[in-house]
Design a protein around this nucleic acid. Sequence first.
DNA 1: GTCTATACACAGATAGAC
DNA 2: GTCTATCTGTGTATAGAC
Lengths: 230, 230
Amino acid sequence: MNFEEFKEIVVSHAKSNSQDAFTENRKDIRVKKEKTVVKNLERIFEATLKIGNEKGFHAMSMRDLSEETGLSMGALYAYFKSKENLLVMLQRNGRDSFQQILEQSVTEEAGPLENLKIVIKTHLFMSEAMLPRFYFTYMEGKNLNKDEKKIAVEHEMTSDGIFTDILKQGEKLQVFKPHNHELTTAVIKAMLNDWYLKRWKYAKLNVSVDEYAEYLLRVVEGFCLAQPQP
Amino acid sequence: MNFEEFKEIVVSHAKSNSQDAFTENRKDIRVKKEKTVVKNLERIFEATLKIGNEKGFHAMSMRDLSEETGLSMGALYAYFKSKENLLVMLQRNGRDSFQQILEQSVTEEAGPLENLKIVIKTHLFMSEAMLPRFYFTYMEGKNLNKDEKKIAVEHEMTSDGIFTDILKQGEKLQVFKPHNHELTTAVIKAMLNDWYLKRWKYAKLNVSVDEYAEYLLRVVEGFCLAQPQP
DNA sequence: GTCTATACACAGATAGAC
DNA sequence: GTCTATCTGTGTATAGAC
């Protein structure tokens, strides 16, 4: 699997993003016509990601957002009840679709090594396909309130669990070396996150997402595989 | 070298932080008595890091800072000419001392493997000793203006260069495998940064900084060493 | 559903007394 | 050097017309 092949899966999923956001946040959204909501919510999310990644969510004013979306301030507030609420909607929405896709990527039939490769590539390709979303979610996570922060941490632990389970199963089947698999997961995640956190660096190094995927896999295999490969 | 041993080097360096900041920013600082400046600048920096890491630099008001430092708003503005200027001072100051220490850690006498171990540990231990600073510098880097961002990127490329040079030298001496060493540096940095970016995770895993250091070294050795170790 | 106009709280910054 | 008091712009959010 390379990025080009993967892209279609994500794009089809991404379409349903604002749809999901509508059903999840119905009670906070004053506008009732679903078609209108889906259309405008998509514009609002996109604009928020754009401005938010340029100058930070807190520094983005509602006037900025109004200008970028083409909607008036009054209209904007028909789609969320406060600026903070908008942040929460965006974050939840992003995390949910991420988790869904990641969970679906693992298969019972595949062996541990194959599954590990799949989740690493899925994670990486998803971040590539939705760069602004991932960057925003990472950077603005700290601006969430206490409860939402807790939810965010739980989500991350769940997705870490997917990796860790694969590693543990691999150890049992003697495909992988015994290690502190939670820690291995942590460093794999660190390398995966770096791809969207340090765009300028990888652009400068002229590395494609497919090349980065192969590189990561070699690093991980070098450390995890019980029998080193040729 | 473990963290306990390393700590003293950093702490002695850290003392000179606000001293350096004074000499570097003399023209923007209205107060003239060096002793006063050093003392108050330290309080201001510390308070900024604290509040900034809690709610973000942009969300920190000057009234917040005034309360935390015990200085009035008027007094604060005697130490920097604008809020943005304060951010720039803090970032520059942090980067400079970081770079100094990292550059000094490499020695001509040591071999590539030893030097690689040293820079990794130095980087990691420094971030551990100055956690709030590192977290702040990473998270607030995107709020810098264009010129300062450029300087920040150049600094990171310089410190990446230290790692890459060691790796290249190691390849020449056939201690390390041939690889894309820039890319290897990037992923090592990613793992190093994760230590201060994801505090909650490593706290939950109950991993000490010394354990993390050993773990990273094993990952890196597994990937880089020409002759795998027993 | 969307607009314009506006409320009013709070931001960064400075003047001038001490 | 440090304070208090204050200026002025901008922030989020809403009311009410269309």
